[in-house]
Design a protein around this nucleic acid. Structure first.
Lengths: 251, 251
DNA sequence: CGTTAACTTGATAGCATTCAACTAGCGTGG
DNA sequence: CCACGCTAGTTGAATGCTATCAAGTTAACG
């Protein structure tokens, strides 16, 4: 293992354990076990699909550095972004039990990804109920977020929908320690926002302008500034319950 | 335990094990362990919400008989149906790790629900890695279906969207042994379809008429008849991969 | 500084919603 | 037994939210 890989391992261990133990209680032995998982790290440039839809996989991957998103595409080329991910996210735990990828994964920025063989994940889970439970919980929270996105895309209008996505992102990022909720880096284009909220880029642009005009949020060069958190949440009908973030972590 | 509960237990065991072992390989001991989970069964009338959004739960529940759906509602009363469920579905496995229900669950028809205490689920999973894996897989498949619904609601037009839902349901129901794919009971109103596909009931009605006019599907009194499976799938862009149903099970 | 991607703006079009009225089926009670 | 009420389904007309098309401008980058 190169020195660099070793360094990445430390980063991964930090963010991953931090996230897993946010809810679950992992014993020292279990933490050790996770830290000793064999990983293969890889640098991936910005805007690169590194897991193709329909691929069959032998490793699960976690994001060590950077930003990524999961997506699905239709035959006509239209794309639905399913989720955004940051360092510490175990992106495709599903690969461990679902042989074929039902969606793709792409980086948004230059990133570092750590691959862990499925057998290692499975073995760690079989040996430690706590690890199994922690991974399971990750999956369930993920699932809960998908449900909220379904509600968001299905039932809220464009304005509210975009506001809601920004609320969610602000809270997730701040809970992960990536800046405060009022100001954080969200390196997506308006086109990405469009694919995530099921709008068009043109309409995202117009909606963003309305959000700024209201004095609630502004967004430039991938930096989001929330100028009125309360008003934004109210307008979005944002209720953090579905993120299942402990109450001890503030917005 | 009453005789009736005992009978329901047998039914549940049959459908649940059948579903779990569709993918996972459970050892005889693990099957036994699942069969011996303590359950409390309950009859629930049609169209009754039996798990409220925001409730905190101490038991997970599985559907023994009947039809149910999960949903989320907005302050303005609009409702998004998240999934449809049939006998053998472990509906809210998420309750085991997520304290607060982020969505509600309602029956569609008269149903029987079996409740299992969380501790029992957790214990069974901790003791048997195979059980943990089987439950985990259930969760992952669920999650995969949410992703597809997100794509469906976000990117497909109303006509294609409804067609896709019917393809999915036909395949899931036939895989579960509830009739053939060409003809099955799907006890939902047009209003339910509207809430599931994020359309209005009026437009569901019109779209259903177009689907029948094309000679692909007809639907009356909760009975769906697929008259041209291939054409329907083509129009819907339906690809069963995301359901993760073994290839040995035909449409 | 040329090239390209991202963003912005205006005008037009259309899919789906909304509103409203009407029909059909079904259980209930007088 | 029929009237009544209620839910589900159906149809028509009008509106509107958002997409589409087209033409900019700005910003990033080699």
């Amino acid at each position: 293992m190169s020195d660099q890989t070793a360094e990445w391992r430390v980063q991964l261990a930090g963010t991953l354990l931090r996230k897993l133990s946010m809810h679950a209680t992992l014993s020292p032995a279990e933490c050790e076990r996770i830290l000793s998982l064999p990983v293969r790290s890889q640098r991936i440039p910005a805007r690169t699909v590194f897991i193709e839809e329909g691929a069959s996989r032998r490793e699960a991957c976690a994001l060590v550095q950077g930003h990524a998103c999961r997506f699905k595409t239709l035959a006509d080329g239209s794309r639905q972004i399913l989720s955004f991910h940051i360092a510490g996210d175990f992106i495709d735990l599903d690969s461990t039990v679902l042989e074929i990828a039902d969606h793709g994964v792409s980086t948004l920025t230059d990133s570092i990804v750590a691959y862990v063989p499925h057998e290692s994940v499975t073995a760690a889970m079989a040996e430690h109920a706590g690890i199994a439970r922690a991974f399971w919980r990750e999956t369930q929270v993920d699932s809960s977020i998908f449900r909220e996105w379904l509600l968001n895309v299905g039932q809220r209008d464009a304005f509210t929908r975009l506001a809601h996505l920004l609320c969610e992102t602000a809270l997730r990022y701040s809970a992960a320690g990536l800046g405060r909720a009022e100001r954080f880096e969200f390196p997506v284009t308006q086109n990405d926002l469009a694919d995530a909220t099921a709008m068009t880029a043109v309409y995202v642009n117009r909606t963003l302008q309305r959000l700024r005009a209201e004095g609630w949020v502004s967004m430039h060069h991938g930096e989001v500034r929330i100028e009125n958190w309360k008003a934004l949440c109210d307008a979005a009908g944002f209720d953090r319950t579905y993120l299942h973030i402990p109450a001890t972590i503030a917005a």
